[in-house]
Design a binder for these strands. Structure first.
Lengths: 144, 144
DNA sequence: CCGGGATTGCTATCGGCGATAGCTGTTCTA
DNA sequence: TAGAACAGCTATCGCCGATAGCAATCCCGG
């Protein structure tokens, strides 16, 4: 099968998408062993770092819409990884449970392995520069 | 609403995902005006660059599975942007129609505008370095 | 102090894209 | 010529993002 030419390879957006897909697939495989999805894990980690935060705050930090946070938090609570207590009539304070803390540690370990699989091929100066540039792109989000 | 701390921001995979999502959303908005989805457009552009290629070849070039190519090609053919002729009992030769060529030009123009919106904030040395690094990550795909 | 706007969490539903399993028919090859 | 490999296809699932709209609650300015 002949290899096709593909000028999309010169595009930032396209390369970003391809690279991101590859890393996401690897991460998903890694986290599947904890029976967790990437979005659940990121949510759990943010709650661990910010005890008593609210659902909206987590969503804001991760760019996950309020509506989409609901099933994520539900699943975390069903598994007793996260607990919440009412703060006022609208919002809850989220906290990671003891069982949750164990998963947090496991997840970080797996994430570290996953990251290393890719960053090992990059020198650390290049890596830092890359992450900085990605942050710029991320922040270029259109307000509309 | 307090801003939460988020050490995920230091992770390559996470930043990649966020940046990619932002660019994809922008691209989707841009291409929606042609009533096309990103995957359809990339497919169309690859066919334009490689007349008489097969569906599998396009899929290979774009990392789209054979099964997922089917509805994409169907839609392109329904809109008469792509035509195919039987090559042998199994495969077809794909070509962009005249109408398709017009869309190809439109799409490239829109993609250029989309890309510029992000690359304008980067100097070109940084950009080339970024694209090169992304290619490395992309190629790090696990064989399994 | 009260009424209207903002906030929080929620339901329901859609859209896009990737993945898998498995089928048919065809072609290649040992 | 039989079995492996290949091309296209159906059907279906999973994950993530987005929208529209609801109910309860809170907050603030008049």
């Amino acid at each position: 099968m002949a290899t096709l030419t593909n000028s999309l390879d010169r595009l930032l957006g396209y390369q970003l998408r391809r690279a991101s897909t590859v890393m996401m697939a690897d991460l998903a495989r890694e986290l599947a062993e904890l029976d967790m999805r990437p979005a659940e894990v990121t949510t759990l980690l943010v709650i661990a770092e910010n005890p008593d935060c609210s659902q909206s705050e987590v969503g804001e930090a991760l760019s996950i819409k309020r509506a989409n946070m609901v099933p994520i938090i539900s699943r975390l609570m069903d598994r007793d990884l996260v607990a919440r207590t009412r703060v006022d009539g609208r919002s809850h304070a989220l906290r990671v449970t003891a069982a949750g803390e164990a998963v947090v540690r496991e997840a970080w370990a797996r994430i570290a392995m996953h990251e290393a699989r890719f960053t090992d091929q990059l020198d650390s100066a290049r890596l830092d520069a890359l992450i900085a540039v990605l942050q710029v792109i991320r922040d270029a989000q259109r307000a509309d």
